[in-house]
Design a binder for these strands. Structure first.
Lengths: 212, 212, 212, 212
DNA sequence: CGATAACCGAGACGGTACGTCTAGTCTTATC
DNA sequence: GATAAGACTAGACGTACCGTCTCGGTTATCG
């Protein structure tokens, strides 16, 4: 059975305060301006208390990001096209916040540090990828998506363009352009030769309803 | 008439040496490990000589990247599919080098600094985008690409997936997967099997209007 | 009750090492060549550890000088003339060393900084002045020195000439000239009516032999 | 005959402006805060123009001091005691000004640099010492001063105490104390055996008359 | 009168030291 | 044994000056 280790147990309150102040400061000053001293001070905690839990600033930021993951509900509307559109808008909504911007930087900065990148993939991206895979699997099963479509390819195609756009322009993709991009991606993912007329009608209707 | 500014002119040799040693160190130690002192030392230059030219490390790195831009020849094989494939493999080849990895980090780190991001877009990405736009215009004109295809949308679709993959996995996309991705993207970009004649007229008009 | 301040206490060893290396470097390179970086390096200490204790190089040098004060023993030979001569030779011996030269520079450099000058007076010069005052008091009591002689006047008269000489020539006063100066000063300090013959003989002999 | 060297001659105006701004800045910011850049800027002159004339800041300061020497008139009142008193008060008056304070620092800072110290002695102190020697010689000749009195010894005795006092306290000696010091020094310098009673009366009278 | 030479201002050059900041570790007394 | 506090070594930061150099241009003497 798991025995309690001796001595004073680590304060859960301190841990939470550190993570919270990390995210707050990440939003305020950006990844570049983050310092462990400032994080500890805002959390009302000594610096060594931070180091005791995370080896480096990067590790702390990764942990803080992971701690903010929301489940990314897979809504299962019964329509693969609609499901994918919802995931895409969910992604862009996340990227719009101040924290969201930082996430990209963390990805880029963390590249070399394999364990951290691994943790980020496992706990931050993994769940999203799994939810995404479920959507794709349902779409393939229902015949809406191409039979040979692999989930990771669909993921790259759907999320790649808006992320690339953000990276280059510094701004999240606007709604109009997002719709155009999605329409094009859908052509690459959808099972073949749907009747042209009905397809175009549905697109117009849907995108009109789904825009924010 | 344009007069020379008074005083000793800045040394072009020093400038070049700084840019060169910046790129060399970026490849060796990565963006995170870059130090203005180390750059200056390797360039055989005093630290103030660096600060005199660039306000910050970020600005210097952006300038160094810009100084390495190669024209990105547009080969014009006469086949739009082949042209696009060549651009895609060119991108991944660039990303494979040690410097290429750093570029992504620079993009992410620089996001907030608008002037730097602007410079990076204008001088590093801009030329590539222009070459890309030319390829797309030719493809549209020849009827191989969809008549309503806009160059920036094609750019996001083609380059977004491999970049996204690199960002997530830390590794450039493998050849096999790159081919699969390209095949899917092509489905989104290619003109349908319509009769060539009618479509080409419309397309020619469009691409003329959309080019920048 | 006096409570200890929290946190790690300052290292007494580091403090001592800094003071020691300050005096060593003062002797080696002079006041002008002193560098906080060099002091810290020789003390095996980080630069901030120096700044944490002293606000400036001047403050550090003053502290280092103070830390080297030796009690300046008042020997009390029973003869006021002999006591004063011993103090004078003690002063010149101190000034002869490499450090001694620096002291003058510190005095001059520190003039404007009242707190530092005050500290120097209180802890470096003060003790010497007190010992000096005791000698004068005994001499007055025994009738060897003028009844109305004030200690600070005696101090200026005795130490002023050799210091002035050092300041002007850069060299401590030679023994021969020191003796002549002392003989003259003694005339100004001694109680009058010594038997003219013996006193004048001794003085005459001395000053005659010692004059240059 | 001495030929004029070819090329554009050095600007006398620039030289004078540099010396003037040196003295002004010495008074404003002190020796420690002096920089060649600031001196050149205030003189409206390029930095190399300063270096062309003086090898170092110290050399410049010495030159600037020398350029301000006033002849130090020897008034020759016919009374040696009065002459000496006038020289003493002349010294203290000089030391009272802001520049005067700096002079001491220059002496101390310059110690090691023999050529500069030599120049300072030759051109700044030398003339004063010569005037002083003349006073002493007259006093000896008239029998007021001791027959065996050497000028340099008299100089040390007269100027040493107030200089020493300034060095220690940072303030010039006050009038009352200056009088007491002078009275004592006079005892050391004056020819001997005046009747005690009359001598003391004279001293009292004199010092009363001589006070400022 | 044109050539030559040393000066002039401005300002960049390679360096060095400054004083501050942050990293990551260590040492207290307290809980 | 974890805690808050705060010191520790190490080293990068961006700035200020140093003393030298390189510009374009000016002002003198000399041929």
């Amino acid at each position: 059975m798991a025995r309690r280790s001796p001595g004073r147990p680590r304060s859960a309150a301190a841990e939470q305060a550190i993570l919270t102040s990390t995210m707050a400061l990440l939003a305020e000053v950006g990844l570049h301006g983050l310092t462990i001293g400032a994080i500890a001070a805002r959390a009302g905690v000594g610096r060594p208390t931070v180091y005791r839990r995370w080896r480096s600033l990067e590790a702390l930021v990764v942990a803080a990001l992971i701690s903010t993951v929301r489940p990314l509900r897979d809504l299962d509307t019964g329509d693969a096209r609609r499901d994918l559109w919802l995931m895409l808008t969910g992604l862009t909504r996340d990227l719009r916040g101040r924290v969201g911007r930082g996430v990209l930087g963390v990805h880029a900065a963390v590249q070399a540090h394999s364990p951290l990148a691994q943790a980020l993939r496992d706990h931050y991206l993994g769940p999203r990828a799994r939810a995404f895979a479920a959507v794709v699997a349902r779409g393939v099963a229902s015949g809406q998506l191409r039979a040979d479509l692999e989930p990771h390819l669909a993921l790259d195609l759907l999320f790649g363009p808006p992320i690339y756009h953000l990276l280059l322009t510094g701004e999240p993709m606007g709604t109009r352009r997002l719709k155009a991009t999605f329409a094009a991606v859908w052509r690459a993912l959808a099972a073949r030769p749907q009747p042209v007329s009905s397809s175009s009608t549905r697109e117009g209707r849907r995108s009109g309803r789904l825009g924010r």
